[in-house]
């Protein structure tokens, strides 16, 4: 019965936090009003929407409302016109403008470096896009180095382009990642969970012992602790977080801190 209701469309608020599948139609509140008013023209300013509704990943506008194109949990953020998006568990990264990612240098081609970021094509990074870099003073980047940077150009029709400086020319944490440490891959869903403000996993891990951590939106994590053993413990815990519940993780951490 639920499936039949989906076809005609369900109110978007009713599905927030629930699983949606491609092809589901979400109706927006403004849309109910239109239904009620029928074909009547609206001239008064009172019926104008308060702000623009943001339509995030996994959703497309379709005549009646929003069409779901990815499977996952529907999320909503109130305020302004509000925002809807679909939180899905993916492994393949698709570059998005403004995302911070970890890239691996695959080639040096004249003025630009080619970086593998896990997307469908390599990203380019200019040698001038580093803090303090000039035509004379080139950054020391070798093939195989890890670079933490930000996308300034990322769309489906163009080659993605990265920089390691912010708009004021400061590095703000971006640049070449040090020599040692350990790089591994996790799902994109886990990265988003780890990057959420006040993430429990990170807070619990930080009580264990000090370590350095770089999280790339492309699913790559770089970890470095005092010893190789400590680094690998962190890596194993983070990798296991994908499948562990909060209680299981707390138990595992309690066992570690006991030793």
């Amino acid at each position: 019965m639920a499936a039949m209701a989906m076809e005609r469309g369900t109110a978007a608020e009713a599905l927030v936090g629930q699983v949606v599948l491609p092809g589901d139609l979400l109706l927006l509140p403004a849309h109910y009003d239109e239904d009620a008013e029928g074909e009547r023209l609206r001239l008064s300013a009172g019926t104008a929407p308060q702000g623009r509704l943001l339509c995030g990943p996994g959703l497309r506008r379709s005549g009646a409302g929003l069409l779901v194109t990815k499977c996952g949990l529907l999320r909503h953020r109130p305020g302004g016109g509000g925002a809807y998006w679909v939180d899905s568990q993916q492994k393949r990264y698709v570059p998005v403008k403004g995302d911070h990612v970890i890239g691996i240098v695959t080639a040096k081609a004249g003025d630009v470096f080619r970086l593998d970021v896990g997307g469908s094509e390599p990203a380019s990074l200019s040698y001038l896009a580093f803090e303090g870099a000039t035509k004379r003073n080139r950054p020391n980047v070798q093939v195989g180095d890890l670079i933490y940077g930000q996308f300034v150009v990322a769309n489906k029709d163009m080659e993605p382009e990265m920089v390691c400086i912010d708009s004021s020319g400061k590095s703000s944490g971006m640049g070449i990642i040090g020599q040692d440490g350990f790089l591994f891959k996790v799902s994109l869903g886990l990265i988003r969970k780890l990057l959420a403000p006040k993430c429990e996993i990170i807070q619990e891990l930080s009580q264990l012992y000090p370590f350095e951590l770089v999280l790339g939106m492309n699913g790559r994590i770089w970890v470095k602790a005092k010893t190789v053993q400590q680094t690998l413990i962190i890596v194993n815990i983070l990798e296991a977080c994908e499948y562990m519940t909060a209680e299981q993780r707390k138990q595992a951490l309690a066992k570690l801190s006991g030793n």
């Binding site: 092809g23 996994g58 194109t69 990815k70």
Partner: peptide, 10 residues
């Protein structure tokens, strides 16, 4: 579905 590719329908 599992790969999260954009689909118009199932």
């Amino acid at each position: 579905l599992d790969a999260g590719l954009p689909l118009a329908a199932l």
